[in-house]
Structures are given as C-alpha cells and as structure tokens.
Simulated scan of single mutants.
Amino acid sequence: MANIETVQKVIPFKESKLSKKEQIASMFDQIAFRYDFLNHFMSLGIDRIWRRIALNKLKSLAPKTMLDVATGTGDFAILAEKRLRPEKITGIDISEGMLQIGRQKVEKLGLSDKITLQSGDSETISFPDATFDAITVAFGVRNFENLEKGLSEMRRVLKPGGKVVILEFSNPTVFPVKQLYNFYFRYITPLIGKYVAKSEAAYSYLPDSVKAFPQGKAMVSILNGIGYQSVTCKTLTFGICSVYCATR
C-alpha cells in the first residue's frame, strides 16, 4: 500500500539534488507550453467531465470565495467561475511558467476581476485562517512535497463548514481496465511526453506518482487524521480518477 513516505520519495529527476518541490516547479515550467493540450489529448477529453463532476460537489454550498491549489494554467479555476459563479477565486501554484499561461487565459476571457493567479506554496499558504468558503485541487496533491502539511494548510485557511474537493488520478482495479491503464501509463505516456512536451521525465514521473499516492480508504484516513469531517471518496471512469470531499 502506498504511504506518505513513498510519495515524498517519488521525484521527476532522479539524478537531481534539488528538493521534490523545486523539481516539480522546474518540471512544470518546462512542460507548461503543452500541458493543457496533453491533459485533454491523453485523457481523450474525459478530464473535462471529471472536473465538472468534482465542482458539482460544491453547488449546494454556493461558495463566495474559493482557493484553487496547484492551479497550474487555471483550467479548474476558470471552470469553477463558470459553473459556481463565486465572487472571487484565487489560484496558487509554485510554477511561474504555468501561471503565466493561466493569466493570459484569464485575461483573454475577461475574468481578471474574478480570478487571481499567484505564486504560492500549498505548505505555506499566505492567507489568514478561515479565509475561503471552498478549496479545490485538481491533479495536484500527489505532487506535494509534504502531503499532510499541505492538506493541513488547506484546512487552516478553510472556513468552518467550508468544503475541500480534491480530484486526483487513481489506480483502477477492474480487469481489463487495470491492465490497459497500466500499459498506457507505463509505456505510451512517456513517449507522448518525450515527443510532444519534450520531457520524457515529466511523463514518466506521472505514472510513478500515481502508483505511489495513497488512494481510496488510505487517503480518506489521512484526511480524517488531519481533522477534516464528512470525508468521502468517489471513483470515476472505472477507478482511473477519484474525487475526495471533506468539510472543516
């Protein structure tokens, strides 16, 4: 079973002396120019459906202020603005390369007054306690250098009664989806990364990080241990992806 120590040891550049956090920032800076295209291409567009399902978990809450952690190029924040219409969304990420692309998208859509994308670390979130009604993370928590610290910081800046929604890859267990998924992730994904994003390491790290990440009951247990309430996990598309919801 995956554990937190294993997650922290999975890094993109195995020969590098940089910390995991520094490697992650560097990796996303390198692939930022192809990130959105590859997300949609490699998932056959299903990632868009996953995001909508995740955001539906917040509809009843009708949040006014939202934080999107590991926002990347801002796709999740932009979709949240469209579907939930909060007053303000703040997105944070450690990759300035990703943020630059995200800011261009936000400006082009005329959403600069609603969405702010800024440099920020999940483990030291620069906002006071109980700031946000809702917090989202899409495909980002497995990249945290310290998973528990990042999740604890998210809880700290969440208002009492507020919700966190985490969307993350998981490992399917049903035959033959498991076998096809593992083959695609292990052999095809790195080749696509090598030739399209010019980074085989980044797309070899992807399956390694998913495999190592605590999933299902293990992730629910971690969230409960940190102090979150009403923690749930819903698997999507035969277990390829999971949505975790929790309340402060």
Rank of each mutant, 00 (worst) to 15 (best):
M1S: 14
A2E: 09
A2H: 02
N3A: 03
V7A: 10
I11R: 10
S16A: 13
L18V: 05
K21E: 11
I24S: 01
I31W: 02
A32D: 04
M42T: 06
R51T: 00
L58G: 11
L61H: 11
L67D: 07
D68V: 09
G72L: 05
G74M: 08
G74A: 07
K82R: 14
E87R: 15
G91C: 06
D93C: 03
I94L: 15
V106Y: 07
K108D: 05
L109V: 08
G110D: 00
L111A: 05
I115W: 03
I115F: 08
L117S: 02
L117R: 07
Q118P: 05
E123L: 09
T124N: 15
S126R: 12
D133F: 11
F139P: 04
G140P: 10
N143A: 06
N143R: 07
N143L: 09
E148A: 07
K159R: 11
K159S: 05
P160L: 03
T173L: 14
V177S: 05
Y184S: 12
I188R: 13
T189S: 12
Y205K: 10
Y205V: 06
S209Q: 10
V220P: 00
I222V: 13
I226E: 03
V231R: 09
K234I: 04
K234F: 04
T235G: 09
G239D: 06
S242Y: 04
A246S: 10
R248K: 13
